[in-house]
């Protein structure tokens, strides 16, 4: 059937999807579902291999060093300044209500329940997640993953599983460090600079924080660790599959990994918090 919009556009080799909105929506929906399926398959294969030997402990230790140890300084610094700014803002609001005695509680609750796990996850994505995607992506492009496969060495065991274990082990520890530094940063601003009694500051923390808060923080950091390693490894493992080839393909996969894992962490954070509040 003659289409007055399409024929002239084809003539000039232009493709304006705006004239085919349903086609565009359908195509993108199918692509999205296909990608989700691939990701679910990737995760299920990874979890299967996580549970069965051989366990490559030396590679897990190496990746803990890369994801955890090398991110520690960044986490300590961001934790310190997040705690400081949180306390600074909180102090001036609470003083106006005469409730500055609750400063420690607000700082610690915000850090342990929300900011600690989320900011730590975002820092790990920026420092280690992007590097993981780029490294695995380059290995895919240069046939290094095929070389592993050709040697009958399971690429999942060498490239994916160590990162999953490393992220699951590192994230809770980094989150705990972030929280401790944040509370100490709060102490510096609230007690040392603003003149609040240290007993009041720490007393409020002890009164307000319960085991369930620490468990929530742990649940979040474990979930984020799994999400980061899963998404970043997946994007690297399938670099070149729809993301272009060569350097451009790796760069696109890395960008997608960072954006997708950051957004997913924030969405997941909302749902975990919701579930924890209503159960």
């Amino acid at each position: 059937m003659y289409n007055i919009f399409v024929i002239p556009l084809r003539k000039y080799k232009l493709r304006f999807h705006m004239f085919h909105p349903f086609k565009l929506i359908g195509k993108n929906t199918i692509a999205f579902i296909h990608e989700l399926g691939k990701m679910a398959n990737f995760l299920s294969i990874s979890i299967y291999y996580m549970l069965f030997p051989p366990f490559l402990f030396h590679r897990v230790v190496k990746q803990i060093h890369f994801i955890g140890v090398k991110t520690t300084l960044v986490i300590l610094l961001t934790g310190l300044f997040t705690g400081m700014v949180l306390t600074l803002q909180g102090f001036y609001v609470l003083v106006s209500f005469g409730a500055e005695s609750k400063l420690g509680a607000i700082t610690a609750m915000s850090l342990i329940r929300e900011l600690g796990p989320v900011v730590t996850a975002l820092m790990v994505i920026g420092r280690a997640g992007s590097a993981l995607t780029a490294e695995i992506g380059i290995m895919r492009m240069s046939e290094q993953i095929d070389a592993l496969d050709a040697m009958n060495l399971n690429p999942y065991k060498y490239l994916v599983i160590p990162n999953l274990w490393a992220a699951l082990i590192s994230l809770p520890i980094l989150t705990a460090l972030f929280n401790v530094m944040g509370i100490w940063g709060g102490y510096l601003v609230g007690v040392e600079l603003s003149g609040l009694s240290s007993g009041v500051y720490y007393g409020a923390i002890a009164d307000s924080i319960s085991a369930s808060d620490l468990i929530l923080s742990l649940q979040k950091s474990l979930s984020f660790g799994l999400l980061i390693a899963w998404i970043c490894c997946f994007k690297g493992f399938y670099a070149g599959h729809g993301s272009g080839f060569g350097a451009q393909g790796v760069s696109k996969s890395t960008t997608e990994a960072v954006v997708m894992s950051s957004v997913t962490v924030l969405i997941c954070d909302y749902f975990i918090t919701s579930i924890s509040l209503f159960t």
């Binding site: 380059i138 290995m139 240069s142 046939e143 290094q144 095929d146 070389a147 050709a150």
Partner: peptide, 12 residues
């Protein structure tokens, strides 16, 4: 089976 890949596929 052994394979020698086009660009070597060495672990860089």
């Amino acid at each position: 089976i052994g394979i020698v890949f086009q660009f070597g596929a060495l672990f860089d």
